[in-house]
Simulated assay, not measured.
Amino acid sequence: MVAIVLSSGGAAAAAPVDVPPEVANLFACPATAPCNGIVLGEPKPVYDLNGGYSTDKSADPRGSISQWIAVAYDPAGTVIGTDSAVLRNGTWVLGDVYHPPYDPTVITRADGLLQVPVDGAALYALNGDTISGIYGQATRRVPSPTTVESAQASVTAWARQAPWRNPLPDAPTNPILVGVVGLGGAAILAAFVFFTRPQRRRPASPEPEHGARPGPPERGAL
């Protein structure tokens, strides 16, 4: 999984993304949602990687929005992790609080995140026209904030070194290679979920779960 944070001020900076009303309502934790006193911060978009970014057809790494994520706080205002929502059967569903292997407050300083599951659970942070790695392969590929343009070769090195591993729209369509990619990608995602399973920290409640923690095979836990 890869997440990217972009900072303001550059030519590649993206326009602000409006939070869908139904997503905003989920993160506001209304009485109808079993938040059990947990307070969620401002939701930020989580992007899939733009296929054109790895093939030099686009200078923008942001693809479609696959999740919304926010920092989770206890009633006293202490950071306790993150929470995110995914789209299931046409409805946004909020997951459980997760304790990520990176500083959750990076989300408060980011415009959004970008994930690339096929790159060994790499995670970046995006803010305007800058990007920096915050977990996994990303911390090696882009160890400090740099421009999206300058980081393009590093962020997509996995695709450039072995183009057949790239499952994005611009990848080759050789049916044999596609099959290999599918099996390899599934193994990578399964391993990532096993070692980064979310810890449920919400108080016990008689209410039913309001949604499983977002994770593969749809997406990796953030």
Rank of each mutant, 00 (worst) to 15 (best):
A157F: 04
V155K: 04
A138M: 01
L113R: 04
N127C: 06
T147F: 05
D170F: 14
Y124P: 02
V148S: 10
R140Q: 14
G133H: 08
D170Q: 12
L168A: 05
W164D: 11
Q152G: 00
W158A: 06
Q152W: 01
T108P: 00
T108F: 00
V116S: 10
S144W: 07
V106K: 08
Y102K: 02
Q152Y: 01
A157P: 01
G120T: 04
I134F: 05
P167Y: 10
V155H: 04
T139A: 03
R141N: 14
T146M: 15
L123Y: 10
P169W: 13
P169V: 09
S132W: 14
V116A: 13
A125S: 15
P143I: 05
N127K: 11
D103F: 05
I134N: 04
G112R: 07
L168P: 00
E149P: 00
A153R: 13
A125H: 13
Y135C: 01
T130G: 09
T146Q: 15
L177D: 12
Q161R: 13
I107Y: 02
G136I: 04
R140F: 11
R141P: 00
T130D: 09
Y135T: 01
L177G: 03
T156N: 08
Q152V: 01
I131Q: 08
P163E: 03
A121T: 08
I134Q: 10
Y135P: 00
P175K: 05
V155Q: 06
D129W: 03
L113S: 11
Q115A: 10
R141Y: 11
Q137L: 08
R160L: 09
G128L: 03
S154K: 10
P172E: 12
I176M: 08
V116N: 09
A121C: 07
R140V: 09
N127Y: 07
V178W: 02
Y102I: 11
P169R: 01
I131M: 15
G128N: 09
L126Y: 13
I134C: 04
A138N: 02
A157N: 07
I176N: 07
L123E: 11
Q161P: 00
T173H: 09
I176S: 11
G136E: 06
Q161C: 01
V148D: 05
S132T: 15
T173D: 13
G120Y: 12
A125W: 07
T156E: 03
R165G: 00
E149Y: 01
P169K: 01
A171H: 06
G112Y: 05
T146I: 03
A157E: 11
V155E: 02
L114D: 06
T146A: 15
E149N: 08
P169M: 03
A153N: 14
W158F: 15
R165L: 13
S144Y: 13
D170N: 12
N127R: 10
Q115L: 08
P145E: 04
P143L: 11
D119Y: 12
V106M: 05
G112D: 08
D103I: 06
G128P: 04
A151C: 05
S154H: 03
T139D: 01
G133T: 03
T147S: 15
S144N: 09
I176W: 06
Q137W: 06
V155T: 07
A151Y: 03
